[in-house]
Amino acid sequence: MRAVTVNPGVRDSLRLVDDYPEPHAEEGAILVEALAVGICGTDHEIVEGTFGEAPPGASALVLGHESLGRVLEDPSGTLHPGDLVVGIVRHPDPVPCANCAVGEWDMCRNGEYTEHGIKGLPGFARDRWRVQPRFAVGLDPALAPVGMLLEPTSVVAKAWDHIERIGARAEWQPQTALVTGAGPIGLLAALLATQRGFAVHVLDRAETGPKPDLVRALGATYHTGSVGQLDLVPDVVVECTGAPSVVLDAMCKAGPTGIVCLTGVSSGGRTLDFDAGALNRELVLENNVVFGSVNANRRHWDLAAAALARADQSWLNALITRRVPVAAYAEAYTPTGDDIKVVLDFTA
């Protein structure tokens, strides 16, 4: 069968293998036919050789962590042949740490977790894959064109879950949310904010293209420029760029008892001259919280599935700016400046 692989740490090792072995039964009871995988920045980093880890004893890693497939067989009875399914990316560490032991593998304390298509587990960019029942998320059939968006949606579902948990520390009646960055994570964060009834503002560099229209279609307000120029005091800021200057501005922008969730991952290596004392004073005196959020556990995947089912399907479809057949895999993994979400199509 076909599989898209890399040799982690080796730049330009991306290739399509035509005779990759069938998934071993040890991977899981549920056998799945791949429909599509989404491609994100993590995939690009792995292809560039800066990230990624092959399974034990292997030199190659199958890519793909934003999965979508159709069940071929499930002897466990969890799902049924023909059902749409997505595979949860992260598996708990084998120790396990206190969090992994109770299913909170997104909060792993020792870093020994594994992740499909990223760290120690083969990914979903292959014609067939297997998954354990507890890591299989069934989807509404109506989500067939966009189900690969479940993984990035799970990331922001976790972010909002934790925002709400932190907000419950006091009487909290938030009204305004600012999202910095209008990539897939930012747009999905804005979607979940509108579903919660916030007045939503999205800041991005793009002045043209699909992003402004996608934001406005949510009933949100689109901005360009800098965070500091915005004439608003948000109760919640979801930072999705990882750009150091934007991160710092986001921390300073939140209003009293405000919450800033950082989801963008910075590359490092850049220093900024800023007044750390003034930032500290503001965070302390206004009872603000800044926290980081990454990955998701089963609860968040289920929340994400419900959020996608409630969303406007035409809006979700518009997030996918390119659908590329597997035969043109190299094109799919070559970023362009106009992409929001690129999908590798296993049915074409």
Rank of each mutant, 00 (worst) to 15 (best):
M148L: 00
M148H: 01
M148F: 00
L149R: 00
L149T: 03
L149N: 01
P152L: 02
S154Y: 00
V155R: 06
V156H: 03
A157T: 03
A157G: 03
A159R: 07
A159Q: 10
W160Y: 08
I163N: 03
R169P: 07
R169S: 13
R169K: 14
A170I: 06
Q173R: 13
T176G: 05
L178M: 09
L178R: 04
L178Q: 04
V179Y: 00
T180C: 12
G183Y: 02
G183M: 04
I185C: 05
L187F: 10
L188E: 01
L188V: 03
L191S: 02
L192D: 01
L192E: 01
A193E: 00
Q195A: 01
R196D: 01
R196Y: 03
G197F: 02
G197I: 04
F198P: 00
F198H: 02
F198V: 02
A199F: 02
V200Q: 03
H201Y: 05
H201M: 05
H201W: 04
L203W: 07
D204G: 14
A206K: 14
E207K: 09
T208V: 08
G209L: 07
G209N: 06
G209E: 07
P210F: 06
P210V: 15
P210G: 05
K211C: 11
L214Y: 05
V215I: 11
A217N: 13
L218Y: 06
G219P: 06
G219S: 13
A220N: 01
T221K: 04
T221V: 11
Y222F: 15
H223G: 07
H223P: 07
T224R: 15
T224W: 09
G225Q: 14
V227A: 05
V227I: 15
V227G: 04
G228A: 15
Q229I: 10
Q229E: 12
L230R: 13
D231R: 08
L232I: 12
L232R: 14
L232F: 15
V233D: 13
V233C: 13
P234Q: 06
V236S: 07
V237I: 12
V237D: 05
V237K: 04
E239S: 12
E239K: 15
C240Q: 09
T241H: 11
G242R: 08
G242P: 04
A243R: 03
P244K: 02
P244M: 05
V246T: 09
V246W: 03
V247Y: 05
L248D: 06
D249E: 14
D249Q: 10
D249P: 08
D249I: 07
M251P: 04
C252D: 12
K253W: 08
A254R: 06
A254W: 09
P256M: 10
G258Y: 10
G258K: 11
G258F: 11
I259H: 10
I259M: 11
V260Q: 11
V260E: 10
L262M: 13
G264T: 08
G264Q: 11
S266P: 08
S266F: 12
R270H: 08
L272C: 06
F274R: 05
F274A: 10
F274T: 10
D275E: 09
A278E: 10
A278H: 04
A278T: 09
A278N: 05
